[in-house]
Structure formats: C-alpha cells, structure tokens
Nucleic acid binder design. Structure first.
Lengths: 112, 112
DNA sequence: CCGCATCCGTCGCGATACTG
DNA sequence: CAGTATCGCGACGGATGCGG
C-alpha cells in the first residue's frame, strides 16, 4: 500500500473520528438520542457540567457537519430546539459499537 | 437519565475513542491489520511521515491497552516485531464502520 | 432565553539529539 | 536496529463577561 492509498483509506474514518472525539460531543449525542427535540437550556441541564461556551461551540460543529438540526421558533420568549438529523441517527450504531468494545475490554482488564 | 447514569453509559465509548483518536493510531492499526507481524523499521516506513518519537509513544499506548503485541527476538542484530492482539483485531469492524459513515457523509456533501 | 468575544492554561504533537 | 530524553509550540478546552 502506498502513502496515498493509505491516506485515502483512512481519511473517512479520520473524519468521523474528528466529529466524535470532541470532549462533549458524545454526551450531547447520547442526550439528543433520547429526545426527539430538546431546547437549549434543557439540553444544557442534561449535559451536566458543560458551559454555555462549549455547548454552543459543540453544537455549531455538529450542525456544520449535518448531524444536528437547529430549529428556531420566533416566539416570545425565544425558543430554539435541537434534534438529530438522519445522518446523526446513523451515528448511533457506531456509538453503540464503541460502548460494546469498551465494555468488553474493561471487563477483561478486571479478570486478569 | 441522571448525571451518573449518563457518565456510566458513555464511559466505555469514551475509552474506545481515546484509543482511536490519537493522531497516528488509525494509520498504525491500518498497517498492522494488513501484516501479521511487522518489524519496527518496516512499520515506521509504512506509516509515512511518523517520527520515531511518535511511533514509540503510540505503540506504547496501544500495548498498554492490550491492542498491540510486542515480541522481541534476541538476535544480532536485534529484532522486534509488532502485531495486533485478539482485542486489537476486534477493533477492525469499528474502524470499518467509521470509514463507511465517513464515506457516505462526504459523498452527500458533494451531491447537494 | 440564547449565543458570542476574549483571554488564558493545559496537553498532544513533534523536532532534535543521544543511547545500547 | 530499536529505541529514549528534552524542549517548545499550537490547538483545544474553559471561565468570564457582554449583546441581541
């Protein structure tokens, strides 16, 4: 395998990983996954410990990558709801695989 | 879902991600995957662009996490071979899923 | 209620030089 | 051939305060 071939082969995986690897993205996905729609402040409360800055930054990334959808309702007071897109939902099986591998591996470590 | 429940739920996925997310780990896995055993310098040549420092650091992590196996042959000149463990092999399907999702998503971006 | 601008600390990454 | 030690930079994470 040449350098180019190797790079081409892993590029899509790198791309996916870059999205998942952000410190809060996994938590955000897990929360969004269990709600069809959720408001900003509700989301902020569910993703324990996150600051406004980080939540907005993470959401921005996720939106730009087509994983999260932002819907703004022009009411008073203003209301914004977030939800997973179809693309975002397709990320869930991967998330579950990550959990499975992690569980198996952590389990084995304890067994000796 | 409480804070603890959420943390417990995602912890294994975080663990798996931390392993995969290192800058060179994906490339190293991809190379190791296509060789049963490979020597240090051969590996260094295949993982284009990596420095000795980074290769050793990455390998150390992967070994500590039970993904890579190091076998040293006491010959002259010295010879060390690296290979994936059973646990490491179980990471391959995840890697492939990451590639698939990335390809689909990148594809859609170009379609408009 | 929702989000942005700024500033700062930490850490992953890496260049270089050295060892058995 | 197969590594280790040291030093430094830059990007990401995060606290705080402002704006619509």
């Amino acid at each position: 395998m040449t350098e180019e071939e190797l790079n081409k082969a892993i590029a899509p995986a790198r791309y996916t990983l870059n999205i998942l690897a952000g410190k809060w993205n996994l938590k955000i996905l897990a929360v969004l996954c269990s709600y069809n729609d959720i408001r900003y402040n509700e989301l902020k409360r569910k993703v324990y410990g996150i600051t406004g800055t980080m939540l907005n930054q993470s959401l921005k990334e996720l939106i730009e990558n087509g994983i999260v959808q932002r819907v703004q309702y022009n009411e008073v007071p203003s209301r914004v709801e977030y939800s997973l897109t179809r693309t975002g939902l397709e990320l869930i099986p991967i998330y579950e695989q990550l959990v499975l591998w992690g569980e198996n591996h952590l389990g084995r470590k304890c067994e000796h």
